[in-house]
Design a protein around this nucleic acid. Sequence first.
DNA 1: CACAGTATGTTAGAAATCTTACATACTGCT
DNA 2: AGCAGTATGTAAGATTTCTAACATACTGTG
Lengths: 251, 251
Amino acid sequence: MNAKDRRVTALSLALAERRVIHLKEAAALLNVSEMTVRRDVAENPDLFGYLGAHIIPARGPEIEAPYTVDRAAESHSIAKRQASIQALRYLQPDEAVFIDCGTTLIHFVDLIPADMRLTVVCYAFNTAERLIAKQNITLVMLGGVYHPASATFAGARDTDMLNAMGLNVAFLSASGVDRQRGASCEQFHEAPIKRKAMDMAQRRYLVCDSSKIGRVRPAYFADVSAFDAIITETGPLPMDAAGWNSGPATE
Amino acid sequence: MNAKDRRVTALSLALAERRVIHLKEAAALLNVSEMTVRRDVAENPDLFGYLGAHIIPARGPEIEAPYTVDRAAESHSIAKRQASIQALRYLQPDEAVFIDCGTTLIHFVDLIPADMRLTVVCYAFNTAERLIAKQNITLVMLGGVYHPASATFAGARDTDMLNAMGLNVAFLSASGVDRQRGASCEQFHEAPIKRKAMDMAQRRYLVCDSSKIGRVRPAYFADVSAFDAIITETGPLPMDAAGWNSGPATE
DNA sequence: CACAGTATGTTAGAAATCTTACATACTGCT
DNA sequence: AGCAGTATGTAAGATTTCTAACATACTGTG
């Protein structure tokens, strides 16, 4: 039983450093047969998982549910990505950029070319996670207490930090945009950060899919006139044209 | 070319939501043959990667280098984990805890029981990443500019943030501990944060494997007397006993 | 419309991974 | 030492995944 424990520990250890390890590699590492490693893995489903012949740390639930086109359509993923593609045209190399939280701007981050040099400020964990992977980006993170609902950090000192920065552009997200009632989001703690970022930036763009137009959400953070442009999947909205949010919200 | 682009986009989209997707599933999702998906993936190595028949987002370099026992021994992984196990005895539920950066304390975080309620302050990305996954932990992150070398954030306002907190314990790491020259680390920007955390905490523990004893690294941050205990893989060092760091550094 | 070039599908065989069953080695206990 | 139970290794066959080659369909251009 003792040797087995040692192997399991060593495997956990190896997985802590690398994200995956091939069955064959693990067998070599532990000086046992592949079959033994298989058995070790099988006996500790709470520690290890499989992806083909690759051992990975125990997987979260994410892998389970099959990804369907329906679910994707429901969440407007395609529209969000399209909006991000449109917004990308407003991003210049070598600028200092604020990137807001939310799934829409996750797409935006993914779309930033690998060779574009930028300084990016963010306060969402999943945004930061992807920015870190990009070599040419200097990342500045606003700290604070973690809010799982939006995967963001928010706290006392974040606006101070922004004060010390010169921002060229701010890309904002919103879950509601109404001509009269302005841009709004779900979480109240996000609003002050959004506002501060908008204050500091030379240019301000709101990026969202058109399903958000006409909606109002609990936390107001800016009038529509505060943005240089509101960018949806079809490009910037004509700000001056009457009735751009006259249609019903298509949730 | 257009249909292909749409597929690539849809695949990226799916991967953004789920971490992996099976080749077969992707083929069904996109309504094309597996072979076509394979070709799509092969043509976009900067976007996609493979893990067996599973498509994953473009992998970082981590997967490449084979993990060897040598490297593991070199990095003292086992000792680090042992030290963390020892340190875990000093962690009480419902406390406010500071956790330092570094691989040693990554093990420490991994070892925190899933049901332990804590408030944790950290400033390293990989530490935060693991803490977020724990349901019963309230995470406070110190922000700032990202330093890839240590995966930490550091900046102007982080110490302010700590000022506003009451900390029960601080778990510190060091890459050098010398009885005369104190505790030191590689990165200068870490030192002020470590010091501030130590100032704020009621109890201070240094956690490191014994290979660090007797070493001196560039960035000094505290005398050994500043710690309530120095914990290595064999438990707390006898602080009063003479000569605990008289031996040669066994790198 | 004919053509060149590209895109996609299909298939067969090679290579890998997975499962199962059985043989052998080890451990702790009396 | 002898025994029961566990742990590990080996190997064959089933299954899945990978590769390469060829066939067919589609696209835009002159």
